[in-house]
């Protein structure tokens, strides 16, 4: 199905582009990807055994992504490089976020740091964080007479 209304945009700014303000408003109204204040955008899941954090980090060198775990706090950090520009090159738009980033998440329980694993695929980071054994609820057997 081809959407009935498709907004067509120009590649170049200047004479034929929309003004900055109008473009910003359109972006807010139409729900652009990467619109959030926080970079990178993340999702967090959990169950009684483990937590999972996913992050939108396209174009990264996986080795340049740092994951630190301390107790129940997980921190993702690194740097996403901007496209390099020569003097005579013009940047018509820059919507993609770049630069240094650091995001911390407090989870409902402490994590076993040595069991954390992460994979990076198609620009998505997925970190699996198993719960620390010592924080799991223990069932206490009640002894009768």
């Amino acid at each position: 199905m081809i959407p009935i209304l498709t907004r067509v945009e120009t590649l170049d700014d200047g004479l034929f582009g929309l003004g900055n303000l109008q473009r910003e408003m359109n972006r807010l109204l139409e729900g652009y990807a990467g619109r959030g204040e926080d970079f990178p955008a993340i999702n967090v899941w959990s169950n009684p055994e483990k937590a999972v954090i996913t992050a939108e980090l396209p174009g990264m060198d996986p080795a340049a992504i740092n994951i630190a775990v301390q107790g129940d706090v997980v921190t993702l950090s690194g740097e996403r490089k901007a496209e390099e520009l020569d003097k005579d090159e013009v940047l018509h738009r820059q919507e993609r976020r770049h630069g240094q980033f650091s995001r911390s998440v407090r989870l409902p329980y402490a994590i076993a740091p040595d069991k954390v694993s992460a994979r990076y695929n198609r620009g998505l980071l997925e970190v699996t964080l198993p719960r620390h054994e010592g924080t799991k609820p223990r069932r206490i057997a009640v002894a009768g007479d």
């Binding site: 199905m1 959407p3 590649l11 170049d12 139409e30 729900g31 652009y32 990807a33 990467g34 939108e56 980090l57 396209p58 174009g59 496209e83 520009l85 020569d86 005579d88 090159e89 013009v90 940047l91 018509h92 738009r93 820059q94 919507e95 993609r96 976020r97 198609r122 620009g123 998505l124």
Partner: peptide, 26 residues
């Protein structure tokens, strides 16, 4: 039907334009 518009950078050089598109998960 509810696809989203990916974030882009658009660079113009002397001999070309380059559209850089973030497509995480694609």
């Amino acid at each position: 039907p509810d696809s989203i518009a990916p974030a882009v950078d658009i660079i113009e050089r002397k001999h070309e334009r380059v559209v850089v598109v973030d497509l995480p998960g694609a």
